[in-house]
Design a protein around this nucleic acid. Structure first.
Lengths: 352, 352
DNA sequence: CTGAAAGCGCTTACAG
DNA sequence: CTGAAAGCGCTTACAG
């Protein structure tokens, strides 16, 4: 077992200094501190009370926690199953809330008794992941990608299928295709937005800013997008949603307004779990198994910790694209439908 | 701060014995062990490394973890928000998996660095909660009720509204009302089942075992129940679901089979979050705010820990009943609809 | 089944 | 900015 004593020997300092470095005593020389922490990380140090060793896996948010989103709750379920094998417990924690500004990430995690972390991050906090990797603390980032060779991640790669999804709509005859995504700037949604634009571009369809909609990841957000799309001049005939809740909310709103899917509007969703089967019609969707991603991340990380070997994983799991009943050819009488709107509400329901 | 030393003084033993009792050394006399652990609980003991004190709140399953169920993920979200105020971290752990058979619950929690627990439990493991309370470890049980005066709980009480829901169906004219619940025997579902029977009984409608359906809490489970209900002789004209996912799955399946809601069948759901708004028609539902329950539990427990005062909370938060569009009068031609089924699939869609 | 004493891991007041 | 030494909380080999 790694201890202050063994670290002291390796760092060529006293155990006093090691303890100070670990506890962020400002008296300690920054260079010394860094050397000590690097060694602590290399040797898998964690403070122990007698024989007692905490085997906690951190499930760490760099920003706000979003545990109740379908993606996160499925991931967390997978993480717990993955942590089971090596008998780790999962500690939920939040860097934004709890990390003291002057302590390093390693210091923060060690203070919490965490041996390794699975990190959920937003676009702006990517750099935090790079900093943690730089310190050498055992980590796997979930659902982000990094070019730096020292950052481990497991990523659901939805780019190819997002292009495929949009091109599928184009092949059906759609030319006005809207894009809906959520307001948290994470990489997944950026990917899907880029793919959306790329697919349009490849097929000679001009990108139109008016067709891009951003809302909070709620059913209400999806409903709002649907209403906005249906009420605009020269409206879209299809929507590609980058978020499951937005897609479900839009379908629901369409029913409420008596708008037929796919006769009046085609919808492609995104699904982290099996929500696409929860609505009618079943949503044509780009899909990933969030639970499997979480399981994989936790299993790999805990095995690594148990075996005391450092490896870097950079894994991209491709999504899959499923065609169901929410997509079809665009309505033929779209111009009329848009124009004969007398008192604000068009009568949709193209069929019948 | 409570320490082995202070406990030793109070218990009239040496610190050696205290340490042994805490660590479950079999050599220690059971009576002594019990006395020491009781004092440890009373004084809020938790092992510390130097000044370092872990402030972990345990989110503990007595059986299988069900983190991905909408109820649990909403509760967990609330628990994290509630734990924020007093800056506790949340440790997910599982008694079934990790507790050694010979250690007490207190020993188990202290070993994990947990100061207080929020417990999720099943019918059969209720007694575990009573045992934890008996040991005196700080705990709040979520979504169970206890008559023992020393067990704290926060419970969403759905009994009155479940009766109201079934009576609402009866008032609409329904006489054959099915009941669908999930296969995990928790108290909530038992409550709702009892309420269902009580409502029938109060209104002179005989209970029929054939109308009770139990499935795993999945969309597929709900779909199965709907298919079974629709295909039975002398079928039900309404279903009361005790689980959100079952209700949503049933609605979806009805759409797929072209069965109109509520024209062909009325559906009352149960909703822990806002899923009722995710389907069409919006589900008439018995509702509770699972996130609020979790928040309340975590906030009360952590405040209690911070203030070092022991209180017992026995709180029942009533659900609320919302009528939406999934319920209506029963179909008039039900007998014919049941009989003119030639090749196995009746043509429903009463309207039109 | 229990305790005095040695010892381990860590922190910290004191000294430089 | 650093370390030797005292000290704290805990565990454990030894003794009874």
């Amino acid at each position: 077992m790694s201890s202050v004593r063994s670290i002291a020997k390796l760092a060529g300092v006293s155990i006093t200094t090691v303890s100070r470095a670990l506890n962020n005593d400002p008296a300690v020389n920054p260079k010394t501190r860094e050397r000590v922490l690097a060694i602590a990380n290399r040797s898998g140090y964690v403070a122990s009370v007698g024989r007692r060793v905490n085997s906690n896996l951190g499930f760490v948010y760099t920003d706000e926690s979003t545990v109740s989103h379908p993606f996160d709750s499925a991931v967390l379920d997978g993480v717990m199953r993955g942590a089971d094998e090596q008998r780790y417990d999962v500690l939920l924690t939040n860097l934004k809330r709890d990390k003291r500004p002057d302590e390093s990430y390693t210091q923060f995690f060690l203070r919490k008794g965490i041996r390794g972390v699975i990190v959920r991050t937003m676009r702006e906090s990517r750099s935090i992941c790079e900093a943690i990797a730089e310190e050498g603390f055992p980590m796997i980032v979930l659902s982000e990608r990094f070019s730096a060779p020292n950052v481990s991640y497991i990523d659901g790669d939805s780019r190819a299928d997002s292009i495929r999804a949009v091109e599928y709509l184009i092949a059906l005859g759609h030319r006005r295709i809207a894009f809906g995504f959520h307001s948290i700037p994470d990489r997944d949604h950026m990917d899907r937005f880029a793919a959306y634009k790329e697919a349009l571009d490849k097929n000679g369809i001009p990108f139109d800013d008016m067709l891009v909609f951003r809302q909070r990841y709620t059913l209400a957000g999806g409903a709002t997008i649907l209403k906005m799309v249906m009420s605009m001049k020269n409206r879209a005939t299809a929507i590609f949603f980058a978020d499951p809740l937005l897609a479900v909310g839009a379908v629901k709103q369409a029913h409420a307004l008596n708008i037929a899917i796919p006769e009046d509007i085609s919808i492609v969703g995104f699904d982290d779990t099996d929500l696409r089967y929860g609505v009618h019609p079943t949503l044509t969707s780009v899909c990933q198994d969030a639970g499997a991603l979480g399981f994989e991340a936790a299993q790999r990380l805990t095995r690594m910790l148990t075996n005391r070997e450092k490896e870097v994983f950079q894994i991209s799991v491709p999504t899959f694209f499923e065609v169901h009943e929410s997509t079809g050819v665009p309505p033929t009488n779209i111009e009329e439908a848009n124009s004969n709107d007398e008192n604000g509400m068009t009568q949709y329901k193209t069929a019948i």
